[in-house]
Design a protein around this nucleic acid. Structure first.
Lengths: 257, 257
DNA sequence: CGAATAGTGTCTCTCAGACATTATATG
DNA sequence: CATATAATGTCTGAGAGACACTATTCG
């Protein structure tokens, strides 16, 4: 970052320096933000938003939504903007995942892509079919030992990594690893609750299971939930009961703070 | 990434498309890689390589070494190249840390910086005083509750965050968090061993302590080392003993695979 | 009644942390 | 001898996982 200007600049004041400075001396890569929009649906399936490309390269293949970073927005702001354009949503949990910068990842030009995770409660996500996202679709994402599978009932199709554009298969694998690991030691799962002020423990468990990619013991899950949230007053049990999901009504809980 | 070309491209073949494609349509940010070169010295202190800026902006302030990403190298390759230029080292553990992209982080122009961690064994790190790194210095890094302090005996100075260029204080804080967290569930500490084929347990413990920023119980550390490495045949005890560090000679161990 | 989910109790095993103890070198 | 580090042993409590059990609703 500090090896680009002429040695003679040492004698200038900062003001003088900035005046004479010409930034356009080198060829630059393009920078994009890609957003992995994850949700967990009613059937406790992990889902991911993909868009079918209508242009070369990778015409017809499925891609993670994204776009170029504007000069006047931070990466985080760019990610939020892309998410808004794609889904119409604001106030969503966003987390930087990783930056992908292989030289040939885009045949058109050098593109460096900063990938972000977005965790969206299922009830907030209604895919807008605007002109940008005409071919957006939520795919059900199943974690396998080595990799994943993507499937959509509506589109009646199952994707393999070959059906994905660019290096997006690798990006999805990286995201799954992150989710799988982080669900165990953080509270990101809460971000996927439809209503943080009214949820049942089992509902939350289903989200944990979808992220972890494995079944959890109900008794142990309850115990750890109570230890972590009730004992520490981070959540309280509500009077109201829920009968929507099962035969026996379950208690609602509400997150505090 | 897919919203930049003209709608009429849909009818072309991929070859035709690439032929007519002009990448230079938008203003682009600059992309740099910054390398946080960490080491743990003989006195079990965590150290970080910084360079004193000889130019505006931030003339005289200390900065994390780095430079622009070349068009023909990946981010990882760029990081390795910068590390080589700065320290003369190859074959060093490198890990992508985070990408920093606030709009105003560099007054000259929009710069997006991909930060990498490099873990270098103390014995391999001899700061080269080439023209690029004339003012490179290893600072001892102490972790505090909120933040850190940097100090150098040779330069006889102590740095606060105000003495750092750009947002490099924030980057260092992010790196410390990562090291502190990752040392507990991964084996990155091994990368800082002077000799992976000949080390004592206490020597390794000191590295763990420097990264974690806290003292560890020797008995418990030995127990977990043996469980994790000896029982699983990932390391073996050597016949040879070491008398360099203490009164009673200690056993050497050797990593396998 | 059976079926299904809600919710509790309990046992075991592992592991981390604290701390006491023994062993072996140096000066 | 004192002292410092090497190395082992032991106790405890927390927590994860497995699983048996009870409770409540629907049909």
């Amino acid at each position: 970052m500090q090896r680009t200007e002429n040695r003679t600049t040492e004698n200038m004041t900062e003001e003088e320096f900035l005046k004479q400075y010409r930034p356009e001396r080198y060829e630059k890569p393009s920078v994009t933000v890609d957003i992995l929009v994850f949700t967990v649906n009613r059937e406790q399936q992990l889902q991911l938003l993909l868009i079918q490309r209508g242009k070369h390269p990778y015409l017809g293949k499925w891609a993670i939504p994204g776009g170029f970073v504007c000069m006047k927005e931070s990466l985080e702001e760019g990610a939020a903007r892309e998410l808004l354009e794609e889904t119409g949503l604001t106030g969503i949990y966003l987390e930087q995942l990783y930056t992908f910068g292989a030289v040939e990842r885009d045949v058109r030009m050098r593109v460096i892509s900063v990938a972000y995770l977005a965790l969206v409660p299922a009830n907030r996500l209604a895919i807008r079919s605007g002109d940008d996202a005409a071919d957006a679709c939520l795919f059900t994402l199943e974690q396998k030992e080595q990799g994943f599978t993507l499937s959509s009932k509506e589109k009646n199709c199952i994707l393999t990594e070959d059906d994905l554009a660019f290096d997006h298969g690798e990006i999805i694998r990286t995201a799954l690893e992150r989710l799988k690991g982080k669900v165990k030691y953080s509270d990101i799962a809460l971000e996927l609750l439809a209503d943080k002020e009214k949820f049942s423990i089992y509902e939350l468990q289903r989200i944990y299971e979808a992220l972890a990619g494995e079944k959890l013991d109900a008794a142990n899950f309850r115990r750890s939930f109570k230890k972590k949230f009730i004992d520490t007053k981070r959540a309280v049990k509500l009077e109201e009961k829920c009968s929507a999901y099962s035969k026996k009504p379950s208690s609602y809980y509400k997150l505090l703070g």
